[in-house]
Nucleic acid binder design. Structure first.
Lengths: 247, 247
DNA sequence: AACCCTACTTGATGTAGATCAAGAGACACC
DNA sequence: GGTGTCTCTTGATCTACATCAAGTAGGGTT
């Protein structure tokens, strides 16, 4: 029943490392030169695999590690006092999950794999030590955390100011640019999450999300077949995401 | 009338310092012993005063400093691509403003004084140096920044899941507990912000905010005369803020 | 193939809160 | 004291989206 985590053999020959990771230009190593990267390498638990739906960590349990997504995708959510779930973010390869609990002993959210996902686990205690001696890494951590604040602010703006169409256009474009960062097609990709997740994240009902998708399709803005999405009219979507049509 | 804030004379004898600041148990010094506090003292520009409406910093200008509120209150906001303002937070004495731009060269938001406000300016370059040598301070910075993420997540939850009444109850209670932290009355205080600001922050129309205030008043939950607020039925407000009445 | 189960879509109706419109205080400035 | 400018309140109407209610694919299991 419990998530099985295959423990990777670390043979001295094929040992994977930040140095050779294709995501090193997006991830933590971004801030480091090759010597420092080795020191990071030493503290990272590589290749932890989670299947679809499995939890990477759970809200209100002790916070011991951050996780960098290597492949797949993760959603984070919080359980409200009223007992329902609110998705707070989607995390794609190269992105760091768990920053909302840094400096705190307890996880503020739950992270679940949206599909088969591999992550690098970074124990916080060791990360904090490392940061202490690597100014570049410290700066980068601040950068990532402030970005997380800004992302969340952006979500608030979206929720309080934008229509259903604008929210969905914005999400599609956000995903698009994140695929592009990884040198994948920005116009043709697979949604890692269900309509339900999109609805929850954007503060909408599933039915509304579904309707907007078909409306976009009828308008020729996108082509959508289940989770397979093609963005046809990027500019139109961008205009829509900006919103506030009267301006 | 605006509350008058006596401007502290800084004679060489009575020089104000983190050591003697009444907010030291809420603010950055929280993490420091007395030696380290002196080092923080050296980099802080104390007693910068802003009048109501004045900007402490402005979105998209270079980011050089964080600010700790000493007295008064500050709102931060972002300008959306559509051109309208979204308030992202209110900051009370003892709270740190500007964390959403740490590790970034540019301010992500604008901060304005809501009333006559005094702040301590903390230049980031020196703060980052200091953090490098004080592990406790580093941990505390992580803590503050992650808290900022969580605050923003909380706002998202409020915006996507809660009714107008629930949002306003939650805001009143948040202010209440922040007054309490400072050993002020948690049940009788002055709102530092206008109805308009509340509406904007909570994603509502001013009219709705006004209506909810009078409804709360009629139900005997609060007494409100302009910005003067008295919370009468704390428990009822808490129940309301939790929301989701059917559960 | 027949089954189930979940994800998704489509349609009909209801409602919280926006918007429009118009006062009513509160405060500053001459 | 009057007059303009805000801020706040109250009422009437309108609308985007939720909710309720039925389907209709997919995708796995037997």
């Amino acid at each position: 029943m419990n998530q099985s985590i295959p423990v990777r053999q670390t043979s001295s020959l094929t040992k994977s490392s930040c140095q050779h990771c294709s995501l090193s230009n997006l991830c933590l190593p971004l801030a480091l030169d090759s010597d420092d990267m080795n020191r990071l390498d030493e503290v990272v638990n590589r290749d932890r695999i989670f299947n679809r739906g499995e939890r990477v960590f759970t809200q209100s349990e002790p916070f011991r590690s951050c996780f960098a997504v290597k492949s797949g995708a993760i959603k984070t959510s919080v359980i409200t006092e009223a007992g329902d779930e609110q998705i707070t973010g989607f995390f794609m390869p190269g992105e760091l999950v768990g920053l909302d609990s840094m400096g705190d002993g307890i996880h503020a959210s739950t992270a679940k794999a949206l599909e088969r996902t591999s992550v690098c686990e970074i124990p916080v205690e060791q990360l904090e030590h490392l940061v202490q001696t690597l100014p570049g890494l410290q700066h980068h951590m601040f950068h990532l955390m402030s970005q997380e604040i800004r992302n969340s602010q952006q979500l608030s703006v979206l929720l309080s100011k934008n229509t259903a169409e604008e929210r969905i256009a914005a999400l599609l474009l956000s995903l698009s640019s994140r695929f592009q960062r990884r040198r994948l097609s920005p116009t043709h990709f697979n949604l890692p999450m269900a309509r339900n997740d999109i609805a929850n994240f954007l503060g909408l009902a599933v039915e509304t999300v579904s309707r907007v998708f078909t409306r976009f399709q009828n308008q020729g803005l996108i082509r959508a077949k289940g989770r397979d999405i093609e963005l046809i009219e990027l500019e139109a979507l961008q205009a829509m995401a900006i919103g506030n049509s009267q301006t």
